Simulated assay, not measured.
Amino acid sequence: MRKLLILSTIFALSACGGSNDDGSSKSTYSSCKITSSQALFAADRDNDLKQCWNAGGNGYESQGDAMQWCEKQVNAYIANQYLVGHTVSYAVESTNCK
Rank of each mutant, 00 (worst) to 15 (best):
N47F: 03
S25G: 10
V92A: 05
N75V: 13
S14D: 07
T35M: 13
I10P: 01
E71S: 04
S14Q: 10
Q38G: 04
S24E: 13
C52D: 02
D48A: 02
G64L: 11
K98R: 06
G23E: 07
N75P: 02
T95G: 04
N96K: 15
Y82R: 01
D44K: 11
S31A: 10
S30P: 02
A91Q: 05
K33C: 05
I6Q: 09
K3Y: 06
N58E: 12
L4H: 03
Q81T: 15
A15V: 08
S8E: 15
Y82W: 03
Y90A: 00
S37Q: 08
N58L: 09
C16R: 09
Q73K: 14
D46I: 12
S94R: 01
V92Y: 02
H86A: 04
K72G: 09
E61A: 14
D65G: 05
S14F: 07
I78Y: 00
V84W: 15
L5A: 14
L13W: 14
S36P: 01
G57C: 07
F41W: 08
W53S: 00
Q63K: 09
S62G: 06
N47W: 02
G56L: 00
Q51D: 02
A12T: 14
S14I: 02
T28P: 00
G56I: 00
T28V: 10
A76W: 05
Y77T: 09
V74I: 08
S19C: 14
V88L: 01
M1H: 06
A79G: 04
Q63E: 06
V84F: 14
N58M: 04
D22F: 09
G23R: 07
R2A: 09
L49S: 04
S24P: 06
L83W: 15
A79P: 01
E61T: 11
K98F: 03
L5N: 15
Y60D: 07
S27G: 06
Q81R: 15
S36K: 06
N80S: 05
K72A: 13
S31M: 05
A66S: 09
S62E: 05
G18L: 04
K72L: 10
S30Y: 07
K98Q: 09
Y77S: 11
T87I: 12
A39W: 03
Q63R: 11
G57N: 10
S37K: 03
D65Q: 10
G85K: 01
G23A: 08
G56C: 01
L4G: 01
N80P: 00
K3C: 11
T9C: 12
N75H: 07
S94H: 00
M1Q: 06
T95C: 09
Y90F: 05
N58P: 00
K3G: 06
W69A: 07
A43M: 06
S24G: 14
G57W: 07
S14V: 04
L83A: 10
T95Q: 10
A91Y: 00
I6D: 04
L13M: 15
G17H: 12
F41I: 09
L83V: 11
F41M: 11
L7W: 13
K3T: 12
N75Q: 10
E71Y: 06
Y60T: 13
G17R: 11
V88F: 00
C70G: 05
E61W: 03
T9G: 12
L5C: 13
N96G: 08
Q51I: 04
W53P: 00
A42L: 14
C32H: 04
Q51K: 06
W53G: 00
Y60Q: 13
N20L: 11
H86G: 08
S24D: 11
T28A: 13
V84Y: 12
